[in-house]
Amino acid sequence: MRHIISILVENKFGVLARIAGMFSGRGFNIETLNVGPMIDNKLSRITATIIGDSEALDQAIKQVNKLINVLEVTEFSDGQATERELVMLKVSATANQRAEVVQVCDIFRAKIIDVSAESVNIEMTGNASKVTAFLNLIEPYGIVEMARTGNLALKRG
């Protein structure tokens, strides 16, 4: 089962390694992992999408909560959070294909952020299913390079 976990931590050396090691050491597959500093740079938020058994995950969350430098752990159930991810692509696009690529981008509210003679760089944000649908439509043009963040999530309300 897929679980999204948000972990608020002190922004200190080794915290991410301890948390990732704890999950992988207990047999969880970390599907996506994002870390970024908060406003004051003293804290960071780790957002992890983890595949594994619910009961074992509850135990793992309790153990993460006990780690030094961990301030708060939240697991989001379905519908409890707003989720987004960012994907950046370099797509082959000759002058003849560029209008079609722009049209696909418009449908998904993606932005073209760089243009060259043979390719365009695109950024797009959305939930995982929207990103996947976009990638399926843009792939026939030829994805040269891709970077994808994985999930970020915040609790609703």
Rank of each mutant, 00 (worst) to 15 (best):
I30E: 02
K62Q: 13
E72S: 13
D53P: 08
Q63E: 14
E100W: 02
N34E: 03
A110E: 04
I138G: 12
D53V: 05
V70M: 10
I50T: 03
A81L: 01
L86K: 01
V73E: 07
I138W: 05
I61V: 13
Q80W: 00
R109L: 15
N127M: 03
K90G: 13
F28M: 00
V91H: 00
V35C: 10
S129D: 02
N41A: 13
V120A: 07
G79K: 10
T47A: 12
K62F: 13
L86R: 02
S119W: 06
L67Q: 12
G36P: 05
S129C: 04
I68Q: 07
G52W: 04
A95F: 01
I122E: 02
K66A: 12
I46N: 00
A133H: 11
N34D: 09
E55Y: 07
S119I: 02
F108A: 03
Q59W: 11
I107M: 01
E55C: 13
A81E: 00
F76N: 05
G79C: 15
L67S: 12
K90A: 07
T32G: 14
Q80H: 08
N136C: 02
L67R: 10
N41W: 08
N41L: 06
G36I: 06
E75A: 15
M88I: 15
N29I: 13
I51A: 11
V35F: 04
K62M: 11
V102E: 08
V102F: 11
C105I: 07
Q97S: 10
A56H: 06
N127G: 05
A99L: 13
A56D: 07
T125R: 08
I50H: 04
D40H: 11
L89S: 03
N65W: 06
D58A: 12
A128D: 02
E85G: 10
L67M: 12
A99F: 15
R98H: 04
T74K: 14
Q59R: 15
G52C: 12
T125I: 15
A81N: 06
F23P: 06
I61M: 11
N136V: 06
N34T: 15
S129G: 01
F108E: 10
G25A: 07
A48K: 00
Q97H: 10
M124W: 02
M38E: 10
A81W: 02
N96W: 04
L137F: 11
Q103P: 02
K66C: 11
I113H: 00
E31G: 09
V102H: 05
N65C: 09
I112F: 09
N121G: 09
L71P: 04
N29H: 09
M88L: 14
A110D: 01
I68A: 08
K90M: 06
A93P: 02
T32V: 06
F76Q: 02
R84A: 12
S54A: 07
S129V: 03
L43R: 12
E83S: 07
L43G: 01
Q103F: 15
R26F: 07
F108L: 10
N127P: 04
F134S: 02
D106E: 10
G25V: 09
S92V: 01
K90S: 08
V104M: 05
V115Y: 03
R109V: 09
I51L: 14
D58W: 08
A95H: 06
N136F: 12
N127H: 15
V64H: 00
C105K: 09
N136T: 13
Q97P: 01
K42H: 05
N96R: 11
D78P: 14
Q80N: 10
R98Q: 04
D58Q: 10
